[in-house]
Design a protein around this nucleic acid. Structure first.
Length: 233
DNA sequence: GAGTTGATCACT
DNA sequence: GTGATCAACTCT
């Protein structure tokens, strides 16, 4: 039998946020739409641990219209709009009152890639051909703004329970530690000391993981997800 | 390196 | 309420 499509274990939502971010890797994100069931496998995440994390929207602990769902119980969607054009999806983690969330940064397409291509403004047949040949098509779902566009996720999903259709998580294909990489988070240079926290998790050598913008790998291998430290400022 | 608009914040 | 600032990004 195929466990990939089973619901997430219910005690997943009891995990501390950094473990949740690590163990979201390999899971399937499923969106059932009239145009098809869009599915991607999570290959990159970032943890945001307010109120002490300067990069988190919940930094400082103040509840706003935008961040309020982060303060609620885990398992719900925090979708925000950024740079005037992109939507980003987070999974709320940690118990109510602890404003943590995990940003989904990249997916690997699993089903309905042609429909994802349409939504992304890419030629569906061409994309399907590439994927059928085993070639990657990162423009589909590589990046937090791209994957929401590909799966049709918007602020209309704000506060949605990610255990329920039409948008939910399943067990997917679990990932062993040796395939997990770790690094500082992307795009938060303003966040002071928090910019160096290694709270980004990704699948090693997966073509859908976003590139490293500003750091060099320090070392290789290692059983436990090993650290990649920033080179300079 | 520019684009684009909404959320937040410091004020009136 | 009003206006300034700037963002957990993407594409050229």
């Amino acid at each position: 039998m195929d466990e990939r499509w089973e619901p997430l274990e219910e005690d997943f939502w009891n995990l501390p946020t950094l473990e949740a971010a690590r163990h979201l890797l390999g899971r399937y994100l499923v969106h059932e739409t009239p145009a098809g069931t869009l599915v991607g496998r999570i290959v990159e995440t970032e943890a945001y641990l307010g109120p002490d994390d300067r990069a988190a929207h919940s930094y400082g602990g103040k509840v706003t219209q935008r961040n309020r769902v982060m303060f609620g119980p885990p398992g719900y969607a925090y979708v925000y709009f950024i740079y005037g054009m992109h939507e980003c999806l987070n999974v709320v983690t940690a118990e109510a009152g602890v404003p943590h969330a995990v940003l989904i940064r990249a997916l690997e397409p699993v089903a309905s890639a042609a429909e994802m291509a349409r939504r992304r403004g890419l030629p569906p047949e061409e994309v399907e051909r590439r994927l059928a040949r085993g070639l990657p098509e990162p423009r589909l779902t590589s990046g937090p703004g791209r994957l929401t566009q590909a799966l049709g996720i918007t602020r209309a999903h704000y506060g949605h329970d990610l255990r329920r259709p039409p948008l939910y998580l399943t067990r997917g294909e679990p990932v062993p530690d040796r395939l997990v990489g770790r690094s500082p988070r992307i795009g938060i240079d303003y966040a002071g000391e928090a910019r160096d926290y290694p709270w980004r998790f990704f699948l090693r050598d997966n073509p859908y993981v976003t590139r490293f913008p500003r750091r060099k790998p320090e070392r290789e291998g290692g059983g436990e997800a090993d650290l990649i430290l920033r080179a300079k400022r």
